[in-house]
Amino acid sequence: MAVPDEPVAPARDGSTSAAPVPGPRPPVPPPAGRARIVLAEVRRDSRADRTRSELTQQTRIGETLVSGLVRAQLTLALRLSLLVLIALGGLPWLFAIAPALGRTTVFGVNLPWLLLGVFAFPFLIVVGWAYVRLAERNEQDFTDLVQRPER
């Protein structure tokens, strides 16, 4: 996908070598009389394509970009699971060391029943919702980076 018209490229060596960037050859402009104007338009896209091919061809820059994304997503997942771990995982321990908490009643229901039987579920859903939003934002940032590398 990155360099789809490779086979025809050698024939146009003269026109494409003017591209200021090294690395894989940018896409070839359509064969028309106004080659330079078309080339000027293509140049902006060619940077994005270059970043794409950095990714697909496993250059060092590409690897760094991907590990940045993986790290961002993993950090997000670990942070949210830590939140759940403390909020839910702390409960058995809390009930064990503070038995009075188990005897507390809210609306006539013992607190552990209310927390585990009812409130745990909306809590999990809210955490999941937050994850989907934040993970999609991470991906959007990555997409922006790849498509507009100059920013």
């Binding site: 997942a77 949210l80 699971s81 759940v84 839910l88 058995p92 552990p112 029943w113 585990l116 039987g117 745990a120 579920f121 999990l124 955490v127 999941g128 994850y131 989907v132």
Partner: peptide, 17 residues
């Protein structure tokens, strides 16, 4: 009550990781 909470939370772990 940890059974139902855990059965549901399993989907959160699945979602996150």
């Amino acid at each position: 009550l940890w059974y139902p909470v855990g059965f549901a939370a399993g989907y959160l772990a699945l979602l996150l990781f």
